[in-house]
Amino acid sequence: MKARTRQIAIERTTLVVILALYMIPVLWLVSTAYKPPREIFSSPPSFTFSPTLFNFERIFQLFDVWQLLKSSIVMSLGTTVLSLLLGVPAGYALARSKSRYAIVVAYFFLAIRTVPIIATLIPFYLMMRDIGLLGTWWAVILINTTLNCAFVTWMMFSYFRALPRDMEEAALTDGCTLWGAFYRVALPTVVPGIIASALFCIMFSWNDFLTPMFLTNSDTKPLSVALLASFGTKDITWGTLGALAHFSTVPIVLMALFLNRYFVQGLTKGVH
């Protein structure tokens, strides 16, 4: 018993060290946001500082923070809703189909997910330029929905496949319509899968940087792009960057922490 407690103690100490390795950079970023500019650039680095909200005032002077936030929200919610509307029914159909082509189509969706975005982004950019959607939220939503809808389809395919057919068959025998069997019988039982799918879609598109960098303009750019675009201009210090990073990371981190059950579930199911 003594050896066991010692082992647990060693394990926990190691874990604490690893956690510190992760929390120090994050806490450093958080703390820069509350440091006056003078102290961030002190050389050698100082470890104590008098907290201030100066950096937050600065970013509201320098950026239209609400507009950036709105862009991020519109694009990630747009992508998520569209991906779920397309992907959830498709996942159900592929899981319930008796055709041997169903699995081929399912693997096609999985393969789409592996395509490096650079291969599609350039022709897509020219396409958006030609139809006049370049610089709009739609351009980003449209291209991100391909990857995310493929992801949702595959994830929901594995959720629905794990679900026994009996309940739907029973409902159909009782005179339920085909739509009813899908919408009222099957769908409510896979709500955890839908939450996990939505969580991943929101995260992917919220954190996306490459597509909005080239597909949006200064009025429609999201937080992730503003973070880098702001960097290098004369007025920006690490402090204001840290303050801006609050807006881009806090919502998504909080969401993942509160819904971490679904997050972990999705990790293992969605990519299998």
Binding site: Y22, M203, L223, L228, A245, A256
Partner: peptide
């Protein structure tokens, strides 16, 4: 440990 996974890669 979910924090580094969910944080924006740019950040």
């Amino acid at each position: 440990l979910l924090i580094p996974v969910t944080i924006t890669p740019v950040v």
